Measured scan of single mutants.
Amino acid sequence: MLEGKVKWFNSEKGFGFIEVEGQDDVFVHFSAIQGEGFKTLEEGQAVSFEIVEGNRGPQAANVTKEA
């Protein structure tokens, strides 16, 4: 699992990017966010995740919000 911070997330469109120190930003789709209820992320929020190869390159999977 990697750790990063949410760079930005558009809850209307359901996607955004996660910043990872020393690496390129990683695309995140709302469907990759773990948990119940409305799936969104806040700018600057700490998250842990895995990287998988998507249709358009690397993207986040199994995203969990850090306490």
Rank of each mutant, 00 (worst) to 15 (best):
T40E: 08
M1D: 06
Q59A: 10
F38P: 11
V63R: 00
K7D: 01
N55H: 13
E66M: 15
F17A: 04
E21D: 13
E53T: 13
N62A: 08
V47N: 00
K65V: 12
F38E: 07
W8A: 03
Q59N: 06
G22M: 07
G14H: 04
N10C: 06
G44V: 02
G4R: 01
K65N: 08
Q59K: 08
S31G: 07
Q34A: 12
A60T: 02
V26Y: 05
A60E: 00
N62L: 08
G57H: 05
D25P: 08
E21Y: 12
P58M: 09
Q23A: 10
D24N: 12
G54V: 07
G16D: 00
E19Q: 15
Q45T: 09
Q59V: 10
V6W: 02
N55W: 14
N62Y: 09
V28A: 03
G4Y: 02
G37T: 06
S31W: 10
T64S: 12
N10Y: 07
K13V: 07
A67F: 12
V6R: 01
P58A: 12
M1Y: 13
F17L: 07
F9S: 02
E43H: 15
V63N: 01
G16R: 00
A60I: 02
F49L: 07
V28G: 01
E36Y: 08
V6G: 01
R56K: 13
R56G: 11
A60K: 01
V52H: 10
I51V: 13
Q34T: 13
I33K: 01
V6D: 00
I33G: 02
F30Q: 05
E43W: 14
G37L: 05
K5A: 05
F15G: 02
G16N: 00
E21L: 13
E43S: 15
D24Q: 14
Q59P: 01
L2I: 15
V52Q: 10
V28C: 05
F27P: 03
W8S: 04
I33W: 03
F17C: 04
I33Y: 03
T64I: 10
G4I: 01
S31E: 04
M1A: 12
G22T: 06
M1R: 14
E50N: 09
E42K: 13
G4D: 00
F9A: 02
V52K: 15
K7N: 03
F30G: 03
A60S: 05
P58F: 11
M1P: 14
L2P: 04
E42V: 15
N55A: 15
I51S: 04
G4F: 02
T40D: 07
N62T: 09
N10R: 10
T40P: 03
E42S: 10
D24H: 14
E43I: 14
H29Q: 03
A32N: 11
G54A: 11
E42G: 11
A32S: 11
F49H: 01
L2N: 09
